[in-house]
Design a protein around this nucleic acid. Sequence first.
RNA 1: UGGGGAUUGGUGUAAUCGGUAGCACGACGGAUUCUGAUUCCGUUAGUCGGGGUUCAAGUCCCUGAUCCCCAGCCA
Length: 575
Amino acid sequence: MSTEETPTASRHFIQQQIDADLAAGRVKHVHTRFPPEPNGYLHIGHAKSICLNFGLAKEYAGPEGPRFNLRFDDTNPAREEQEYVDAIMDDVRWLGADWESRLYHASDYFETHYGWAVELIKAGHAYVCDQTAEQVRETRGTLTEAGTPSPYRGRSVEENLDLFKRMRGGEFADGAKTLRAKIDMSAANVNLRDPVMYRIKHTSHQRTGDAWCLYPAYDWAHGQGDAMEGITHSICTLEFENHRPLYDWYLDRLQALKLLPGERPRQIEFARLNLTYTVMSKRKLLQLVQEKHVAGWDDPRMPTLRGLRRRGYTAESIRAFCERIGVTKQNSTIDMLWLEDAVRDHLNETAPRRMAVLRPLKLVLTGYADGSALPPSDSVKVCKLDNHPQHPELGSRSVPLTRELWIEQDDFMEDAPKQFFRLKPGGAVRLRGAGMAICQEVIKDATGEVVELRCVFDPDTTALVEGKKVKGTIHWVPVEGSVEAEVRLYDHLFGVEEPDRAPEGETFLHNLNKHSLERLTAKLEPDLATACAGESYQFERIGYFFVDPIDSRAGAPCFNRTVTLRDTWGKVADK
RNA sequence: UGGGGAUUGGUGUAAUCGGUAGCACGACGGAUUCUGAUUCCGUUAGUCGGGGUUCAAGUCCCUGAUCCCCAGCCA
């Protein structure tokens, strides 16, 4: 009985490396972490990292569950804020990654880092340097020329120990001294030319307050934090590949000094996510917010998790997206369509359907198709519509068909080509869930603008009848009883696929899409009056819309368009 | 020859020891449909270039090209 596994989904290079580590006995389990710096909000690129790290922890979970840490890389108090810490935790949780009780901060380890640095000094691996930042830069050499050693490189252990202690004590001004690792000023890898381990910053830290005026640099803090937490695979983006020798160098020294156990973390790099029509750098996102090109970090046009959430993206769709794009070391730019497809997929399954008219045109029912008069009451009939055509279990709701209706301006054409299946003079369409309307008269205003259509209604067609089929079905909303609401239509924040590719002398801001937001007052079917903040609906034939949690009021919802429906007619019409 | 990494259809990716270049998205065509949605079917198109080894090369060897990262007391 061979239970040979059928080749399932192929495994990406990180999974393969972990498999090899496990097989070789180099590690006994897998423990990952997500290490954000709290100096900005998380964006879709971070989501890729979170999904990767948490996904691996889940995939390789032992009986005690996934081992996944959230660790704030708070080593630079000058740029980090509690506001970001709170938002990051909220976003990570929302995405579905669970760090359980394993919430850590690089600052939790400041004392340990300090003690280890003292040991490195004692072992002759680090020294206090009095060079200014400028001098360090000048003596580092270039990419093709070796640097020259600092004149302080030969200080005695005793002097280094004394100076380092006094640095901690606050005796020296910012920038006056640094602690540097003594590695190799002629290393081809510039990161190994005696990198700074500590710099003096008399700045209070959002967690440790004024306890320290000495802060560890990233390279000195990161790998050691990984090691302390028992991280087995430290996964980061490609730009840190050049730092791996330094990551290993610190770990090697600490292991040699018996300060670390035999099992140690391993750094693996993958290509960060790039998306068309947007920018991903924290600096640029900050600039968009500060210069008010967007309404805030949670502006639905932003690629931030907060923006995406407010736009109506679901955590499930973002996870599916991250799964679909894969993990490699190739720099690539994913088409925004993939992200949009991912929400469409999810919302198509889950979002209840409703009717909404974005750009209203009045349609008046003047009588029945057989010439008889409509009932005396305004309501011609009450229509029952399914909330989801593929999921009848989601129930239905009623929409009154009245004498006066709103339909979409786009759904009427006076001189229509023959592929146009909607309303035209003398033509018939199906009013969704109601029956057929036949256009008998087109009313225009003084400027020739179509302002009203007069139609007759065919009640025999409420159920489908043979011989009375019509190709087009349009949505509608009763004038009496409809709800008016603000609807925001969002488009790409940037008008070009690669916003960073700006003309000479211009920045990425030059490529901002001036029409990325359009506000409309739409007419909605009555049921939508009670739509609640945070709900998603499909407005049939238009797109998916999310009830804005901030601007909506009870009984007065406000909708953000998450994404349009696929529109094959739109493509035809463009030609 | 500064160091490090990458290169497979339009896009994103897969191919275990060298053995039928596969999947998805898109595009295009068609079927179904009370959403021009969804769903379903089909078509399309690829190993960066040049040599070499081999019965057989995306994979191994040689050589060239292109792209990305690195000279913060940022991460």
